[in-house]
Design a binder for these strands. Structure first.
Length: 477
DNA sequence: TTTTGAGTTGTTCGA
DNA sequence: GTCGAACAACTCAAA
């Protein structure tokens, strides 16, 4: 009888298009394992909301495995000792995994790889998280790309591997190792009802998106109001419930089968988003300090200097700027907010409140159901202007202008901020400009039912420009 | 080596 | 309200 192998599930909680799992199951009996190893991640332990998602994702994965005759073995503790115990107990001769890219995970995987070799066992590594193999991607001079467009052009010269089917059956050894009950992992907690973690839900969501939204994605993705044209796949992707390769080919098939030139261009705008994720992972691999330090060294000594009080206002959605507050309240309530609103809220924190981008990164990390180290770090650095950013001019979002442009009727704001529900369209973007009678009619008392603006954008903008100008001319100590 | 072209997502001003 | 130019002159990629 063939010795069993371990498939070590990490950020790949799915059966479809899972290269490591497919290879493991093709080779004989498999023990599917997930280990909660918080110590290894250090400061980058999974965020609180993401853990709630993880709890239900594991539950769902176990149910899917059972349909194929398998079962998920859960453990809590240091990864290698847990793996080794399982190997000794079951006689497993090999470990299969899909690679991870977080710096702490890269380090841990390298250590486990050495241990496996030392014990004379076999390790099989696969790429389950990325569209491309990044090993050969560099500029002609051999440097890593720092601009998105040339990076993506380089990527697209290569083919994307085809989708790998789901295993037909999981053959398990007779004596399975112990499993910790899911409830003992301490991941459970309240999650909004409209979120359904798990692979099936992810595929259903993708189906919905292709059916209803992708053909208008380019034109409508920036409008946060319902019905949203966002795919809302981010949390599914972050936990590996669906793979970028699977999404890429499924959306591409939509482009081939149906549809006008315009539909296809709309859909392509979505595929570009997947390439941005790819770029963020590429940056994290080449600049592992990205979550901790600015890529642009000139910003290392920047004096952010925002007051603790304004940081708290931002976190709680009490800045007095409705579009910012709407986003921040939605984040706290649901663990998610639309991309456009992320940018507006992030720009406000960094440029208007002069808070260090790492405060924003931390808060998002803790509250997003889709928290992803590469995306989060690269995006915060992009907003702050200290990351890989090809823009020739310094950008400061104007929250009123963005609000008028992308939520013209204030429907999104009103849905998130019930205290402003009665305020007229005219003043919803800047309540402090409303005449007293308009506020009264709407039952709004500034400073009581809704905050007065915590800073004045025009002044804050000017101040930020001066400070950031100093970075450029190198006058900072 | 030098040079040229180009870069996710913006804002403000003035006609 | 809409439109185009100016912003200030960067950095990166590639010829």
């Amino acid at each position: 009888m063939t010795a069993p192998s371990i498939h070590w599930f990490r950020n790949d909680l799915r059966l479809f298009d899972n290269p490591a799992l497919a290879a493991a199951t093709a080779g004989g009996p498999v023990i599917p394992v997930f280990i909660l190893d918080d110590d290894a991640a250090g400061d980058w332990k999974t965020g609180a909301m993401s853990r709630r998602w993880l709890h239900r994702s594991l539950e769902s994965l176990n149910a899917e495995l059972r349909k194929l005759g398998g079962k998920l073995v859960l453990r809590k503790g240091d990864s290698w000792p847990e793996l080794w115990r399982i190997m000794q107990q079951t006689g497993a001769q090999a470990v299969y995994w899909n690679d991870r890219y977080e710096p702490w995970a890269v380090k841990q995987d390298a250590q486990v790889e050495r241990e496996i070799a030392r014990e004379g066992k076999r390790l099989e590594r696969f790429n389950g998280a990325l569209l491309f193999d990044h090993a050969g991607i560099a500029t002609p001079s051999g440097d890593p790309y720092k601009v998105f467009t040339p990076f993506s052009r380089h990527c697209l010269q290569n083919d994307i591997r085809p989708i790998i089917g789901k295993p037909e059956k999981i053959e398990m050894p007779e004596d399975m190792p112990d499993s910790v009950p899911l409830t003992e992992l301490g991941l459970d907690g309240e999650l909004r009802e409209d979120w359904t973690p798990g692979e099936q839900a992810a595929q259903y969501r993708l189906g919905w998106f292709i059916e209803n939204a992708v053909h208008e994605y380019r034109d409508k993705r920036d409008y946060p109001e319902s019905p949203s044209h966002a795919s809302k796949l981010s949390a599914h992707i972050a936990h590996g419930e669906i793979s970028p390769v699977y999404i890429w080919h499924t959306v591409s098939r939509f482009c081939l089968v149906n549809n006008t030139q315009d539909d296809v261009e709309n859909a392509n705008a979505y595929l570009v988003q997947l390439l941005w994720r790819e770029f963020h992972y590429y940056l994290l691999q080449h600049f592992p300090q990205m979550p901790d330090a600015p890529l642009n060294r000139s910003y290392e000594n920047f004096q952010w200097g925002g007051a603790e009080q304004t940081l708290q206002c931002w976190r709680e959605g009490r800045t007095g700027y409705p579009i910012v507050d709407a986003g921040m309240r939605q984040l706290r309530r649901t663990g998610w907010l639309p991309n456009r609103v992320r940018m507006i809220a992030a720009s406000f924190l960094v440029k208007d409140l002069l808070q260090h981008w790492k405060h924003g990164q931390d808060w998002f990390w803790r509250n997003l159901v889709d928290a992803d180290l590469a995306n989060n770090a690269a995006s915060w650095q992009w907003v702050s202007g200290c990351g890989a950013d090809a823009a020739p001019f310094f950008r400061i979002f104007n929250p009123m202008m963005q609000s008028r442009k992308f939520d013209p009727h204030g429907r999104y704001i009103k849905a998130q901020l019930p205290e402003l529900a009665e305020l007229s369209e005219r003043y919803i973007h800047a309540p402090w400009e409303a005449p007293e009678e308009a506020l009264e009619r709407a039952n709004v008392t500034l400073g009581e039912t809704y905050p007065k603006p915590v800073v004045y954008h025009a002044i804050a903008r000017k101040h930020a420009l001066e400070l950031f100008e100093a970075v450029k001319t190198g006058t900072l100590s």
